[in-house]
C-alpha cells in the first residue's frame, strides 16, 4: 500500500519533469544549436587560421597568435577597446543615476504626465544605430561650443576627474538616449513600493529627503543592479561603438578571415565580463554597508 503510493507520487514527479522538459525542449535545442555551438566554434576559429577552399574551411593551428596580434601588433584594437571601455563605464553610471531621477519625477500623478511619459519612452523606440548616428551628428546640443566657463572650471580639476567629466559632457546626449528601458524598469519598481510604508514613515515624522534615502533607494537597489547589468550589455553591443565596428569590419579581413575578428570578440567579451563581475562586487559591497 505504502510503496504503491510512493510509486504513484514518484511517477507524478517524473511526469511533471517530463512536461517541464517538453516545454523548454525548444529552448534547449536553440541553446545548443544557436548559442553554445557557435560560442565554442568561435573560440576554435580564433585559435586557428582559416582558409576558404572549394571543399569547405581548412584550419591551421595558430594558438594565441590572433590574440597577440590584437593586443600587441595592431594599434586599432587597443585604442578602440580603451575608448569603448571609457564609454561603457561613464555612460552606465550616468544612465543608471539619470534614469532613476527621471523615473522618480514621472512616478507621481501630475497634469500632462502621459505626454511626458511618451517623450521619455521615445529612446526605447528610436534606439537604432543608424538613426541615432544620423540624428545626433546634426542635432546634438553641443556643450563645447558655448561652455567656456565649464571648461575653465574643468581645467582646474585633476586629470583623473577631468577626462571622464569632459567625456560625459561631450557625449551627454548620446548617453541619455540609452536610458529608455531603464526608466521603464525603475518605474515598474517604484510602482511596487507599497504606499503604506511611506505613510508609516510620515507618521513617524520622516521628511521626503529621509524617505528617499531610507525607503525608495533601498527598494530600488535590486532594480539598480539589473539596470546596471542591462546598460553595460546594451552599450557594449551598440553598433555605433568603434570596437563593434572594428570586429564586424574584420570578419572578411583578407589576410586573417574570421579568426582575427573572433579573437577580438573574445577579448572584448572577457573584458566586458570582468566589468560585470566588478558591478556585482560593488553592489554586494553596498549591500553590506547598509546592514
Amino acid at each position: 500500500m505504502k510503496s504503491s503510493l510512493k510509486k504513484a507520487s514518484l511517477s507524478a514527479g517524473t511526469r511533471n519533469a517530463l512536461w517541464g522538459y517538453g516545454f523548454i525542449a525548444i529552448w534547449l535545442i536553440g541553446f545548443f544549436g544557436f548559442t553554445l555551438y557557435p560560442t565554442v566554434y568561435s573560440f576554435i576559429i580564433s585559435l586557428n587560421d582559416v582558409r576558404l577552399t572549394s571543399n569547405g574551411m581548412q584550419f591551421t593551428w595558430r594558438g594565441l597568435y590572433h590574440y597577440q596580434y590584437a593586443l600587441s601588433v595592431s594599434g586599432d584594437f587597443k585604442m578602440q577597446i580603451s575608448e569603448g571601455l571609457t564609454f561603457i563605464i561613464c555612460a552606465t553610471i550616468v544612465v543608471v543615476v539619470f534614469s532613476l531621477i527621471i523615473a522618480l519625477l514621472l512616478n507621481k500623478k501630475f497634469p500632462f504626465r502621459t505626454f511626458f511619459r511618451v517623450v521619455f519612452f521615445l529612446p526605447v523606440v528610436i534606439m537604432s544605430g543608424p538613426v541615432i548616428s544620423k540624428l545626433l551628428t546634426g542635432a546634438t546640443v553641443n556643450f563645447s561650443s558655448h561652455g567656456e566657463l565649464v571648461y575653465t572650471f574643468l581645467n582646474d580639476l585633476p586629470s583623473v576627474l577631468r577626462t571622464p567629466t569632459l567625456f560625459v559632457l561631450e557625449n551627454l546626449v548620446t548617453i541619455l538616449w540609452f536610458s529608455g528601458v531603464q526608466i521603464l524598469m525603475y518605474l515598474a519598481g517604484l510602482q511596487k513600493i507599497s504606499p503604506d510604508i511611506y505613510e508609516a514613515a510620515s507618521i513617524d515624522g520622516a521628511g521626503s529627503w529621509e524617505k528617499f534615502w531610507k525607503i525608495t533607494l533601498p527598494h530600488m537597489k535590486p532594480m539598480a543592479l539589473i539596470n546596471t547589468v542591462y546598460t553595460v550589455v546594451e552599450i557594449s553591443n551598440y553598433s555605433g561603438l568603434g570596437i563593434n565596428k572594428l570586429i564586424s569590419n574584420n570578419v572578411f579581413n583578407q589576410t586573417r578571415i574570421y579568426s582575427y575578428s573572433a579573437a577580438m570578440s573574445w577579448l572584448y567579451f572577457v573584458i566586458v565580463a570582468v566589468l560585470l563581475i566588478l558591478v556585482f562586487l560593488v553592489f554586494k559591497l553596498f549591500g553590506r554597508s547598509d546592514k
Binding site: 548559442t35 560560442t39 576559429i45 570578440s265
Partner: peptide, 12 residues
C-alpha cells in the same frame, strides 16, 4: 546567454 555579446557568435 543575455550577457554573451552578439560579436562572439557573429562569425560562427
Amino acid at each position: 546567454t543575455f550577457i554573451i555579446p552578439v560579436d562572439v557568435t557573429l562569425v560562427p
